[in-house]
Design a binder for these strands. Structure first.
Length: 439
RNA sequence: GCGGUAUUGGUGAAGUGGUUAACACGCCGGAUUGUGGCUCCGGUAUGCAAGGGUUCGAUCCCCUUAUUCCGCCCCA
């Protein structure tokens, strides 16, 4: 048997319906925020990611899907969305577009060559946002508010928003030096991994799982103490706007994203629900004012975030949030004889073209089984065709809600459906009104 | 890159180095002369992930590979 590639998943059935639903909510939300959807290639020249990400970490050396194409070009399946978007922004000279800032969202698959574990796959879907050409601290708050509001809309509750600031380049460098100076005398007391981090990426020591209770780590200097006045003020402004947007957050000085191009605001949103694995960051992002320049573009401020759709669905499942993924049918058409089947085919087509969701029997089952099937598919109406009745242009329809059976003239079917379903709509509207009044 | 875990039908699973691989659900058919969700009866595996080895004989022992799940590293 041929199996799926490691770390990939077939998403189908209810799972697929959930993804589709969340996609829809995202599209609607981004419309309200006035962000444009954008699609970039799933693979790019390897250099884009190497330069964007830098080579300080394992990412480039062992965690991308690289291949050489038939023309001898080095290509990489995109491991994240930002680099492609920024590349496109530069290549298409969007900075020259009159309408600035450029606000973009994407929603697509990413590929990472990693050992799969809970919350971590080799193929994953990310929804993300990038705002290019704007350094207003309000935008930082707006970008953070997007996943927060998405979670609100979906009904996800057990999340925690962590924010931090790395400050501008000057502040960041000062801090980095201070941290190195601080850890140098204590290096022997740190875990093996941290000793390695000390050399490669000292900021990451703060994130260590082994040493997190080590007093050396707890008393380490905080980014906030090394901000220059300007950076400090900027951070305060971001926090003000977050409050105005009613985003609950916590300042967490240990949030330092892994890559060098981040500056100023960084944030992560964690899932707090019980049962989540060790990879519990649902969404993360930050400001990257230096990235465009690093990719040969004009100096352009930028900020964005990315959200793992798989982890989001996992969190929703763990919180037992019921998404409205309705797959009920309007009607299921049953028949037994061949002449009835011919009629079923035309009726099926007719009803579908009039906007109804219809299924018919195709496995030659007994009528008894057809009833079971119709019930299983949660069909609102059962249409039972009968040669005798068809001679008189009549069709038997069973309303599966009231269980009442009606003989309907063929010309009146649409009328029958409309009447039944509008009664229902009316009931729903009344319920909604009551809720509004109650508030 | 490192470590642990698992892999039996459509599903949940029991099980043993040796004739026909429990049980349950599901599904199909029948009881019901065209009407389901209850009941009863009957049917339902290319044979235990794939390949190799040990053995008179392996689903059960060993090795390899693939995939699963979980952790470390890393985290874009």
């Amino acid at each position: 048997m041929i199996t799926k590639p490691k770390g990939c998943h077939d998403i189908y059935g209810d799972q697929a319906r959930k993804f589709k639903y969340v996609d829809q909510v995202i599209d609607d939300l981004m419309k309200e925020y006035n962000y444009d959807f954008m699609r970039t290639p799933i693979f790019e020249s390897s250099e884009l990611f190497h330069r964007g990400v830098g080579d300080t970490t394992d990412i480039v050396t062992k965690e991308t899907y690289d291949f050489v194409d038939r023309g001898g070009r080095n290509m990489t399946l995109r491991p994240e969305g930002t680099a492609g978007i920024v590349r496109s922004y530069i290549e298409n000279k969007m900075y020259g577009d009159g309408a600035q800032p450029v606000k973009i969202y994407y929603n697509g698959t990413m590929y990472r060559y990693e050992r799969p574990q809970s919350g971590r796959d080799r193929e994953l879907t990310q929804f993300g946002v990038e705002v290019l050409g704007c350094d207003d601290p309000y935008i930082d708050a707006e970008v953070i508010s997007i996943p927060v509001n998405l979670f609100k809309l979906l009904g996800l509750q057990e999340v925690k928003v962590n924010i931090n600031t790395l400050g501008d380049n000057e502040s960041r460098n000062n801090y980095r030096e201070a941290l190195v100076e601080y850890f140098r005398p204590h290096i022997d007391t740190l875990c093996e991994d941290c000793q390695e981090r000390f050399k490669k990426n000292p900021l990451r020591i703060l994130d260590c799982k082994v040493d997190c209770d080590n007093p050396i780590l707890k008393n380490a200097p905080k980014t906030i103490d090394y901000l220059n006045e300007e950076s400090k003020e900027r951070f305060e402004t971001v926090k003000k706007y977050l409050s105005l947007l009613e985003v609950d957050y916590e300042v967490n000085p240990n949030i330092v994203r892994g890559l060098d191009y981040y500056n100023h605001t960084v944030f992560e949103i964690e899932a707090k629900v019980d049962g989540f694995g060790s990879n519990n960051v649902l969404a993360g992002g930050g400001r990257y004012n230096g990235l465009a320049e690093q990719l040969d573009g004009p100096s352009t401020p930028g900020i964005g975030f990315a959200l793992g759709m798989g982890r989001l669905i996992m969190a929703l499942d763990l919180e037992k949030v019921e998404l409205p993924v309705d797959k009920a049918l309007d009607a299921y058409i049953m028949y037994v004889s061949d002449t009835e089947k011919d009629y079923a085919v035309t009726l099926c087509q007719y009803l579908r073209m009039n906007g109804y969701k219809i299924e018919m029997e195709n496995l030659g089952r007994s009528l008894k089984s057809q009833f079971k099937q119709a019930d299983r598919l949660n069909s609102r109406f059962f249409i039972i065709l009968n040669d005798e009745e068809l001679k008189n242009d009549q069709i038997k329809i069973k309303d599966n809600k009231t269980k009442e059976e009606t003989l309907v003239g063929v010309d009146y079917i649409l009328y029958y459906f409309e009447e039944k379903l509008s009664e229902e709509l009316f009931d729903e509207l009344e319920i909604e009104e009551e809720i509004v009044e109650g508030e």
